[in-house]
């Protein structure tokens, strides 16, 4: 690998995912913005909702790992060194954080009283 700058990463991701890259970006922006809007509007983090979101997030992390395994036709059982475990953690972490934020935002924005 020669020029490893953000632009190269971006075009490689664009090549890998096509238009879905932008869908994912939109989803990330929506999740983060929604989360911020809810937190700013309420002036605090709702702990009940956060715990619920984190539980959903745990599942999101697992789902990320399952999909990683499925798509790479391999999986964390193939991990052979420390960097592999780092990658496993990263995939799980990204799945967890992404799902948690998204779940929190959706619950906060949904016009449903029981969703708190």
């Amino acid at each position: 690998m020669k020029d490893m700058d953000p632009f190269v990463f971006l075009v490689v991701f664009q090549e890998m995912l096509g238009p879905v890259l932008w869908l994912l970006v939109a989803l990330a922006v929506f999740g983060l913005a929604g989360f911020l809007i809810v937190v700013l509007r309420e002036g605090k983090l709702d702990s009940k909702r956060l715990v619920r979101s984190e539980l959903i997030g745990l599942l999101g992390g697992v789902l990320a790992l399952v999909l990683a395994a499925k798509f790479t036709v391999s999986g964390f059982t193939d991990a052979g060194g420390p960097v592999d475990w780092l990658l496993v953690g990263l995939i799980w972490g990204i799945g967890l954080a992404g799902t948690t934020i998204l779940a929190y935002a959706i619950q906060g924005l949904a016009p449903c009283r029981r969703c708190g």
């Binding site: 991701f13 789902l63 999909l67």
Partner: peptide, 16 residues
């Protein structure tokens, strides 16, 4: 791939 990339893709591409 698209499904799998869902989670990771969001964060990485957003950062990029």
């Amino acid at each position: 791939l698209l499904r799998f990339m869902g989670a990771g893709g969001v964060a990485v591409s957003a950062a990029l």
